[in-house]
Computed example of a mutant assay.
Amino acid sequence: MAKNPYDALKLDNQLCFSLYSTSLAMSKLYKPLLEELGLTYPQYLIMLVLWEDDGITVTELSGRLAQDKGALSPVIKRLEAQALIDRRRDPADERRVHLCLTPKGKSLQRRAADIPAQVLRASGLDRNAARELKAQIETVRHALNSLIRDTD
Rank of each mutant, 00 (worst) to 15 (best):
E35V: 07
R121M: 09
R88K: 14
I46T: 03
K106R: 12
S107Y: 11
P5M: 05
S23T: 07
N145C: 14
D114L: 12
P42Y: 04
A83F: 08
S123V: 13
G38N: 03
R89G: 14
L120T: 00
L120K: 01
C100R: 07
A66R: 12
E35I: 02
L133V: 15
Q109H: 13
L9I: 10
L147M: 15
S146G: 15
L33W: 04
L15N: 13
Y30G: 04
L61W: 00
L50V: 05
L33N: 03
H98L: 03
S123L: 14
G124A: 04
L50K: 00
G55W: 06
E35H: 05
P116R: 06
L37D: 01
L84T: 01
D53I: 10
I115Y: 00
V75A: 04
L125F: 07
L50E: 00
L45W: 01
G38C: 01
R121P: 01
R127Q: 15
R149N: 10
A25D: 04
S146V: 10
L147T: 14
K106Y: 07
T139K: 15
A122P: 00
T59D: 12
P42G: 00
P74R: 05
I148G: 15
M47D: 00
V58Q: 10
G124D: 03
Q67N: 05
L144Q: 12
L108V: 03
K134T: 13
P116L: 09
L37T: 00
P103K: 11
Q109P: 03
T139A: 15
R149F: 06
Q136W: 10
I46H: 02
G38W: 00
Y44T: 02
R121V: 06
P5G: 04
L39A: 03
A66I: 11
R127T: 12
S23F: 02
L61V: 01
E35P: 01
I137R: 09
A25W: 01
A117V: 05
I46K: 00
A130E: 00
V119P: 01
S27V: 08
A112V: 08
T57Q: 04
V75F: 06
G55K: 10
E36N: 13
A135C: 10
D126S: 06
D114K: 12
P116A: 11
R131E: 08
A130L: 05
Q82G: 12
P42A: 04
Q43N: 10
K28V: 05
Y20L: 13
I56A: 08
K31L: 11
L39D: 02
D86S: 12
L79G: 02
L19D: 03
I76P: 00
R141S: 09
T139H: 08
P103G: 05
I85S: 06
V119F: 08
P32W: 11
N4A: 09
A135K: 11
F17Y: 09
E138V: 09
A117P: 01
K77P: 01
R89I: 15
R131Y: 08
I148R: 14
T59A: 07
A25R: 10
L39G: 02
G70W: 02
Q118M: 15
N145D: 12
D126V: 04
K69S: 14
A25V: 08
S146L: 11
P116Q: 06
L24R: 13
G105T: 03
D114Q: 08
C100A: 10
L99G: 02
F17Q: 12
Q118G: 07
A112S: 13
K69L: 06
A25S: 11
R121K: 12
P74A: 07
D152M: 15
L45E: 07
R111C: 07
T57A: 04
L24C: 14
V97T: 09
A8C: 11
